[in-house]
Design a protein around this nucleic acid. Sequence first.
DNA 1: AAAATACGTCAGTCTTGTTGACATTCCAAG
DNA 2: CTTGGAATGTCAACAAGACTGACGTATTTT
Lengths: 169, 169
Amino acid sequence: MVEGQSQNTSSGQALLYLTDEQLRQGIEAMFFAYRGFTADPDRILEGMSYGRAHHRAIHFIHCAPGTTVNNLLAILGVTKQSLNRVLRTLIEDGLVTSHVGRSDKRERHLTLTEAGEALEQQLSDAQRARMRDAYRKAGPDAVAGFKTVLEAMMDDDMKRAYLALREGR
Amino acid sequence: MVEGQSQNTSSGQALLYLTDEQLRQGIEAMFFAYRGFTADPDRILEGMSYGRAHHRAIHFIHCAPGTTVNNLLAILGVTKQSLNRVLRTLIEDGLVTSHVGRSDKRERHLTLTEAGEALEQQLSDAQRARMRDAYRKAGPDAVAGFKTVLEAMMDDDMKRAYLALREGR
DNA sequence: AAAATACGTCAGTCTTGTTGACATTCCAAG
DNA sequence: CTTGGAATGTCAACAAGACTGACGTATTTT
């Protein structure tokens, strides 16, 4: 609560970007930007009985083909029951295949089918198009700063998951 | 779909930050960061029968005291039925007051009570603490870039709402 | 007087999160 | 080798929070 006065306790200069007002602006920017961020895939998905949860599953299965349910669970941060409902419909609809693990038969390895990859492409294209526009408008330096701040905002285990994904590619 | 090859069609240099892989990283960073962004308030709210929806309402009523229901609706981007459920509980619990408009008696002007302000402080402190840490780690230049990209990601009407809030302060 | 606006509410649906109970599989200790 | 515990995944039921549609009321505008 005392820290709320960071604009006063600072050594007078160069820390103005840590003002409560500046932080509040950042919070609101995050809120509005996230809406834009999800808007395009949401629009595509609506009416095809899928939602944002399906999109997330598809995205990460695409990035890590053959991943297990448990793996996906850790990345998505939901309960396995919640994920299972989503996976079940995706499997029923032929967008995802589930193979029993070779070494450990408890595991199910998940992969996108051709139809699944096609939908992934469609969603991904829409989302990347928005990102690309934003990046282009903002320029490379802004983008670097953008990523730096986002990484600093993550919880430690999320950051680990985030970095692990990059190494896998 | 053809645009997916931006790394090849580019003039060879300086546009590497527009690569599909870079965009994908940005998308994932956004996903993981948003989870961190909401984690602290969510933790505070859980167990007190409120959720993220209540937080959002409280946040924007705090920022624009005396705002109307319609106004809030436009900012939050939800239906009035959805917002009403949230507002009803907040009013019942004495965190928000609703006053009939002076000039236009159809309007209800919303304000936080002392208890409401107290909760807002608590939530806001937690969320700002995370932002402050992230900002400090990243530095002022990164923060500037962060905001630039977020603004570029917003839909036009969200951007208008976002900027309007800043002018009101 | 009629139409439009602002707000509240009731009823019903959908997505997506939750917990609890249960089956299968693996592994390690007795 | 067997048995018990841990890990993986599935099914069922429920809750929060979004949505639509329909309706009522007060007020303002035309």
